[in-house]
Each structure stands twice: as structure tokens, then as C-alpha cells.
Design a binder for these strands. Structure first.
Lengths: 210, 210
DNA sequence: TAAAAAGTAGACCGATCGGTCAGAAAAATG
DNA sequence: CATTTTTCTGACCGATCGGTCTACTTTTTA
């Protein structure tokens, strides 16, 4: 029956991950279909069999990245503990940077280049998400649970610090001689959490564990 | 006399800024010499008259970016006030993000893509610079002037938060409807300074002005 | 002012780009 | 087994790529 779609799904997945890595290392234009094909171990024409053109392949890669970005923080309300919620969010984002650096890099390049290949639907979703999270943070502030910090700038702050460990990993490697180990990543995560939470007038909960 | 080198210097400068913008918006491969020529208002062959090939043009662009990276923080010692020094450094970096976003973006893309086009000499300089700054921060910590924060991670923290406002400006524009105004940039700068300084156990000096 | 040097620019080159196509190979179906 | 459908792939296409070359114009120099 549909074991045909089985091999198709497997190929698609191989191509997507080869494409993700190639886009992250070369940018959109620099990632030729031939390079992607080489990395996937398939002839070029086979890539175009599964993804009729480069834009569609790129969109599929971008879609797989965005679907990975949902987090527990999406459902946090102002009744939740701000310290725990923010610390968890930061830790989650750091874990994404550690485990999926190519996704972070490809997304970063897309934004840096002007975000011209992102659906308007995603952009609107993103605006709504941020609006909701800002309201939660505002609630925490007006309840006196944390310092009066511009909620939007706080979100930027969290995104930038955490994504940095994926996007700028080559710089970090140059400075340290090697990529961060899992333990070093844990220490970096603790540092980011400490600075941001303390910087917002929050204490890292005693029962919070990485 | 050397009015010949005058027009040459002028052309070089026009080409460099057109190239910078084109690299930032398209990445290295996506920035074709033709695109750069169009943006500079010159025929393609004229670009190649001043910069014999694309790599050399890119290197020249990168060099002009790196020469802009020098800051007052380079000469700070552990005798200086950490709060003032760090606040000033952050403010300087934010000002670079505001005034030279294309430089920041082009540099970011280079690092994200693996930093394969940076001279080893620059990389070594960078390592030495970081080592020096880490020692200053360690001095502040051991003198009890600030919290015990991993100096390297603190530098990463500062770099990421400040460069974010240049590199991810398209995302910020999408969320706010427009780019940050000069005043909004000032507010963002204050927020970054507050979070990081407080996060390190420092107080923003009363006499510190943006 | 004449020679030399610097700057301009169109035509052109081989290589690579994204993408098409026809037909072979493999797999599923009846 | 026959046939239909899916998957695979080398050959090929026009466009664009980075880069060269040559001839022309402008500017500088002696």
C-alpha cells in the first residue's frame, strides 16, 4: 500500500537535514542544490523529484525549524512563578542551541537577510505570541513579583543570549579551542539564567535544576 | 599629483559600502558582483578594476568592519570602575548596532557560516583581546567589586544582547511595525545595561549618562 | 602639449546555477 | 505474471556566475 510513501518520507527527511546543514553553512544562495545533493548522497535530479524547486525546499526546511520552536513558555500565565518560568524558558532555549545549532543558524541568516522568505502567517503568529508573553510579564511586574523591565526588550535579551551559543559557535570554538561540552553548556546556561533573573530582581528558585 | 588616488579612494569607498550592504542582505554567494555594481552605480568591470576578485573585495569589507570594532573597553584595567566600564562598553556596542547595522550583519553571517574567511591573524588578536579582558574581569571579581560571573560567558552575553539589535532588526521591525527610533534605542540600551549590571551585582553609577 | 598613466566599460569566456525531460529501474497492484 | 505507478538519474537547457580582455576616455605628468 503506502510503503511507497514510506521510502518517500525517509528520503524527504534525509534531504531536509542535508539541506538544513548546507543552508546554515552557506546561506540560501551559497547552498546549491548540487551541494545539498552531495551531502544527502543523492543525485541532484532526485532532490528536485521530492522538492520541485529550491524555494519549496527552503520553505520546508524553514517550516521544520519553526515547528520545533514551541516551548513550555507558550502556556505560562501570570499566576505562574516568574523565576521558574523564565529560568525554564532560558534553559529550554539553551538546549535547542546545543542540540539544533543548524536550525538556529539557518533561521538567524533568514532574519539577518531581511526575513523575506517567511510566511506572513508565521509573522502574525509570532506577533500574537509576543503580545501574549508581554502581557504575562506585565502581570508579574504589576504584581510586584519582578522589577519593571520592558517586557519586549527582555524577550529580545533572552533570545539573543541563548541563540548566540548556536549561531556564534565558530567564534566560541576559536576562543576556547573546541566547542562547548555538555557540562560547559550547563555552566553557560547557569550563567545566563543567573544574570537575567538577578537582573530582573528575581532569585533562581532553590529547587530549580538544570 | 595624487588627485588620481583621490577619485580612486572615493570609488573604493562607494564600492565598499555598496558591497557591505549587499553582503549583509544576501550573504557572500548571494551578493553577486553585478548586484554590488548596480548598488554602486558602476559597471561590473569597474568593480573588478578596483578589487581584482570577489574574495579580495569581501576581505576589504571585512577588514573595514573589524577596524571599527575597537572600543574604549580595550584599555580598561582592573583599577577602573567595573560598573562604569561595562555600562560604557554596552552603550558603545549598542551605538554600533544602531549606526552600523550592515557591518554587524555581515560579520554575523561570516561567523554563522563558520568564519572561514577571517585571517588567522585576526583570530589570534581576538583571542588575545578576550584573554586580556577576562583578566580584568577576574580582577574585579577577586577584588569583590562584582559577583563571581564566568568572564567569558559575560562577554558572550554582552556581545549577543547588543548585536541582536542590529542583526535581528527585521524581526524587531516585524514585531513593532517599524525600526527602533533613536529614543527607543536609548531605552533598549538602558534595559540591557540594567539587566546585565544588576545581574552581575553592580549598580549603574548615578553619574552614568547615555 | 604630447606621452604616460589611471579609470571606464562593453564584449566575451568557461563554469556553475536552478530547473527540465525522457527514459530506465524498481515497486506496487490487479 | 503483466501492467501501472512510483522512484530514480544522466543528459541537457538557458541564465547567471566570477573573471578576462581590449579598446576607449580622462587625468596626470614631464
Amino acid at each position: 500500500m503506502k510503503s511507497s510513501s514510506n521510502i518517500g518520507a525517509k528520503r524527504r527527511s534525509v534531504i531536509l537535514s542535508a539541506a538544513l546543514k548546507t543552508f546554515a553553512e552557506n546561506g540560501y544562495r551559497g547552498a546549491s542544490i548540487q551541494k545539498i545533493a552531495n551531502k544527502a548522497g543523492l543525485p541532484k535530479a532526485n532532490i528536485l523529484y521530492y522538492f520541485p524547486n529550491k524555494k519549496l525546499l527552503y520553505s520546508a526546511v524553514m517550516q521544520s525549524i519553526l515547528s520545533m520552536w514551541n516551548s513550555k513558555f507558550d502556556n505560562v500565565t501570570k499566576e505562574d512563578c516568574p523565576a521558574t518560568s523564565l529560568a525554564t524558558y532560558i534553559a529550554d532555549k539553551m538546549e535547542i542551541s546545543r542540540l539544533h545549532p543548524y536550525s538556529s543558524k539557518t533561521f538567524a541568516i533568514e532574519i539577518i537577510n531581511g526575513a523575506n522568505n517567511l510566511d506572513d502567517s508565521f509573522k502574525k503568529e509570532h506577533i500574537a505570541w509576543v503580545e501574549g508573553r508581554k502581557n504575562v510579564i506585565r502581570g508579574w511586574i504589576s504584581d510586584g513579583k519582578m522589577d519593571c523591565v520592558n517586557p519586549e526588550f527582555l524577550l529580545y535579551h533572552i533570545w539573543s543570549c541563548t541563540q548566540h551559543y548556536a549561531d556564534f559557535s565558530s567564534q566560541i570554538k576559536n576562543l576556547r579551542g573546541d566547542y562547548l561540552s555538555k557540562d560547559e553548556f550547563k555552566e553557560a546556561t547557569a550563567t545566563v539564567i543567573n544574570i537575567i533573573l538577578k537582573g530582573c530582581g528575581l532569585k533562581v528558585p532553590a529547587d530549580f535544576k538544570l
